[in-house]
């Protein structure tokens, strides 16, 4: 019964990572020891990493440089073998059944050198499409679709070497999508894109995950935390090879702190009255009041528990004292705050 449950769970999970550790071995360690040569200690890139990604989910992985993001991505892509543990894609083991895994996965890495620089964009995609087993006509049709999707038509016959960094990156994502894989691994897909192209790329990623015909599961690593927050259903924080937390961006922020900073901009000719009224109503709460641009414009700052009713009360008091509310801004903790917290305190874990 237990096995059946596990199997059905594996089937519903597009990607499953179970206790994966990766230590990069020292090349020719025995020989170096024999010859008494100095060697650097083995690098422990991942330690007991476990998580599951549901089909159709956009799953983000964030962490500082050297945290293990690329290693983990390459393990799922079958390009690196784990030292311990296992990873499966749609139920296929990345080591024992690597060919099947590669049929299910498209990888768009951040490595520019992964194309043939003297071939055109179209020739490059044609080559890889054939390796994925597409016939000539199917390959051309699919490439045409992708060029339209990424607005690449005019660049199709340019040599890869002549493309801008951003266009090279878009081509890498197009290549990952050639065989319509159910799982996409995207390593910083918008890193070198201009803001408009980046927004379109995010839209494409979102639409792939929401596609009714074939919901694509997306594993995304990025240093652009706003993008991760915007796109991902769940985010894993990785630091020094360990997963420190996995949750939705909102829950991660909430776990970090419930406090929000509120900034209320208002105009008042009798600010002393307004301040007096606020201090009377909220004697237990600390707030600051600053004059803005020298006139009758003021900025009130205070903190509150996320979602409590303080703001409503403050606005009412201000209005009763004759103030006119100009704007209200709420500063919530960002994923950066969350990430920094995990980096500063190695024992923090959720």
């Amino acid at each position: 019964m237990k096995n059946i449950t596990l199997e059905s769970k594996l089937a519903s999970d597009a990607v499953s990572v179970n206790g994966v550790s990766k230590t990069y071995p020292v090349p020719f360690l025995r020989l170096k020891k024999l010859l008494r040569r100095k060697f650097k200690p083995p690098v422990e890139a991942l330690r007991d990493v476990s998580f599951n990604i549901r089909a159709g989910e956009i799953f983000g992985l964030i962490g500082p440089n050297g945290a293990g993001k690329t290693t983990l991505t390459k393990i799922i892509a079958t390009l690196i073998q784990p030292t311990e543990g296992s990873a499966t894609v749609n139920g296929h083991d990345t080591v024992r059944d690597d060919e099947r895994v590669r049929r299910n996965v498209g990888l768009a890495g951040a490595e520019e050198r992964s194309f043939y620089w003297r071939l055109t964009a179209e020739e490059n995609l044609l080559f890889f499409a054939r390796l994925y087993g597409l016939s000539g006509s199917d390959a051309r049709r699919r490439i045409q679709e992708l060029f339209q999707l990424f607005e690449f038509d005019e660049l199709a016959r340019r040599r890869f070497a002549e493309l801008s960094t951003g266009n090279k990156q878009r081509l890498a994502v197009a290549r990952a999508m050639l065989a319509n894989p159910p799982v996409l691994l995207l390593d910083e897909p918008t890193r070198s894109l201009d803001p408009i192209a980046a927004a379109r790329m995010r839209e494409t990623i979102r639409s792939l995950a929401q596609d009714k015909d074939q919901r694509v599961t997306i594993f995304l690593t990025s240093h652009n935390l706003a993008e991760v927050e915007e796109l991902c259903d769940r985010v894993a924080i990785i630091s020094k090879g360990e997963i420190r937390a996995i949750d939705s961006p909102a829950n991660l922020r909430a776990t970090h702190t419930q406090q929000e900073e509120v900034l209320v901009e208002f105009t008042s000719l009798a600010v002393a009255d307004a301040e007096h009224a606020l201090r009377q109503s909220f004697s237990d709460r600390f707030f600051t009041l600053e004059r803005r641009s020298g006139g009758s414009q003021w900025l009130l700052k205070f903190s509150r528990e996320a979602g409590d009713e303080t703001l409503d009360s403050v606005l009412r008091v201000l209005q009763q004292s004759g103030a006119v509310i100009r704007s209200v801004e709420i500063e919530r903790p960002t994923l950066l705050d969350v990430l920094e917290r995990y980096e500063k305190d190695p024992d923090t874990r959720e």
């Binding site: 892509a77 996965v105 050198r113 194309f115």
Partner: peptide, 11 residues
């Protein structure tokens, strides 16, 4: 060239 991984990424 750096293309070996891309080739080995295909089935």
């Amino acid at each position: 060239q750096g293309t070996l991984e891309s080739v080995l990424m295909t089935p």
